[in-house]
Design a protein around this nucleic acid. Structure first.
Length: 160
DNA sequence: ATTTACAATATGA
DNA sequence: TCATATTGTAAAT
C-alpha cells in the first residue's frame, strides 16, 4: 500500500492507496512522520490529485467536485453499507446514529453504527463528522473531537 | 422533571 | 465475555 502526503492549511494529511483506490486518510499528527512518496503508480498519482482537491474542499466546508475511488474492501459488509450511507449526507447536513440505522433497515443498530463510524479508515471523504447523537450531542471522532467540531462549524452546523 | 436500568446490534480484544 | 463514537422505553426518585 503506497502512501503520500497531502499538504493543507490545516496540516499534512497522509493518504494510502491500494491498487483499487484510496484506502485510508490520516489526520495530521503532532509528530510528523516520514511519508514515503516514492512508489506511486501513475494511476495513484491521479487519485492523489483528486483526493487533495477533495480534502481541500471539505476543509473549507464545501462538497468536493470529484472523489477518487475508495477501497473499502477492508471493512465488513455492514461497515461498507454504513459508509455508503454516510456519503449520501449532504454538506451542512447531519444525521443521528439512529437515523442511519433506520436508513439501513436496522432501527436498533445505532450502537453498531457508532462502531462502523469509528472503524472508518477515510474520514473527511466518508463524512463521519456529520454524524451526531440523537440528542444533538457531538458523539466521538477518531481524529479528535476538535476536528469534528471545526469541520461542522465550517459547514455552518452549530454543535451542542 | 431527572436519573437509572436494560435490551438490541456489529465487531474486536 | 466485555466494551464501544447509541437509543428508546419503563420504572423509580
Amino acid at each position: 500500500m503506497n502512501s503520500a502526503a497531502i499538504s493543507t492549511p490545516d496540516g499534512i494529511f497522509t493518504a494510502s492507496f491500494t491498487e483499487r483506490g484510496l484506502a485510508r486518510l490520516e489526520f495530521p499528527s503532532a509528530t510528523p512522520k516520514p511519508a514515503s512518496t516514492g512508489q506511486l503508480t501513475a494511476e495513484q498519482r491521479a487519485w492523489l490529485k483528486t483526493t487533495t482537491r477533495a480534502v481541500l474542499a471539505i476543509l473549507k466546508g464545501r462538497a468536493p467536485a470529484e472523489y477518487p475511488p475508495l477501497d473499502v474492501s477492508v471493512g465488513t459488509e455492514f461497515q461498507q453499507q454504513v459508509w455508503e450511507t454516510l456519503c449520501r449526507i449532504g454538506p451542512g447536513q447531519t444525521l443521528g446514529y439512529g437515523e442511519i440505522a433506520d436508513l439501513l433497515g436496522k432501527p436498533r443498530a445505532s450502537r453498531a453504527i457508532g462502531q462502523a463510524c469509528g472503524a472508518n479508515p477515510i474520514p473527511l471523504l466518508i463524512p463521519c463528522h456529520r454524524v451526531r447523537a440523537a440528542s444533538g450531542k457531538i458523539g466521538g471522532f477518531s481524529g479528535g473531537l476538535d476536528w469534528k467540531r471545526r469541520l461542522l462549524e465550517r459547514e455552518g452546523v452549530t454543535v451542542a
